[in-house]
C-alpha cells in the first residue's frame, strides 16, 4: 500500500516533468538552499538565471504573503506554500501556491487582472512608477515582484485562484520561460 502511494507521487512528478518540488515554510535560508540545489542541478547560465530570478521572486512572495505561517528555526514567522519547478524540454515552468485570506483575494485578483491588461511598454512604465514610490502598505519587499515576473516572462504568467475553505483561497502563479 505504501509503495502504491509513493508510486503515485512518483508518477505524477514524472508525468509533469518535475525537476523539484517543495512544500513547507519558505524561510530565507530555505530559499537560499533551494536556489543552491537548482544551481547544482542546472548550472547558472543566462537562461537558468532568468528562471532562477522568477523562482526566488515566487519563493519570497510565498514567504512574505502566505496566510498560512510557521515559525522558522531562526525564530522568524514565514509563509508556507508549495513551489514546483518543471522542465518541459523547451521551457522551464515555475509554479507557486499558497493560501490567502478570502478577504484579501479580491484585491489580489484585481491587481493580477490589471497586470494582464498591460503590454510591455505599459508594464515597464508601471514598474518605473512603483520602483520610484514607497512600497504599498503591508508590502515586505519592494512591492515589485509580480510586475517583474510578468515582465521577465514576457507575459507568460498565469495567476489563478481556487476556493480552499470558508476562510482561505488558494492562490497560484505559473510562470514560463524558454530554456
Amino acid at each position: 500500500m505504501i509503495a502504491q502511494e509513493i508510486m503515485q507521487h512518483y508518477s505524477v512528478a514524472k508525468t509533469a516533468q518535475i525537476l523539484m518540488m517543495f512544500k513547507g515554510g519558505l524561510s530565507q535560508n530555505i530559499v537560499v538552499d533551494l536556489g543552491s540545489l537548482l544551481q547544482n542541478r542546472l548550472g547558472f547560465d543566462v537562461k537558468v538565471r532568468r528562471m532562477f530570478g522568477i523562482f526566488v521572486e515566487l519563493a519570497q512572495n510565498v514567504k512574505n504573503y502566505s496566510a498560512e505561517t510557521e515559525i522558522a528555526s531562526d525564530g522568524s514567522s514565514v509563509g508556507i506554500g508549495i513551489l514546483i519547478l518543471a522542465d518541459s524540454g523547451t521551457h522551464y515552468s515555475v509554479n507557486s501556491g499558497n493560501l490567502v485570506l478570502n478577504s484579501a483575494a479580491e484585491l489580489l485578483k484585481a491587481q493580477c487582472d490589471h497586470l494582464m491588461t498591460l503590454d510591455k511598454t505599459a508594464l515597464k512604465a508601471y514598474h518605473e512608477e512603483r520602483i520610484e514610490s514607497e512600497p504599498p502598505p503591508g508590502s515586505k519587499g519592494a512591492g515589485l515582484g509580480l510586475i517583474e515576473i510578468t515582465i521577465k516572462t514576457g507575459g507568460n504568467v498565469h495567476f489563478d485562484f481556487a476556493s480552499f475553505d470558508e476562510n482561505f483561497t488558494f492562490f497560484s502563479i505559473t510562470a514560463t520561460v524558454e530554456k
Binding site: 526566488v56 521572486e57 520602483i131 519587499g141 515589485l144
Partner: peptide, 8 residues
C-alpha cells in the same frame, strides 16, 4: 543576478 528588492 539580483532580486527585485535589490533592484530598488
Amino acid at each position: 543576478y539580483f532580486n527585485t528588492a535589490t533592484n530598488k
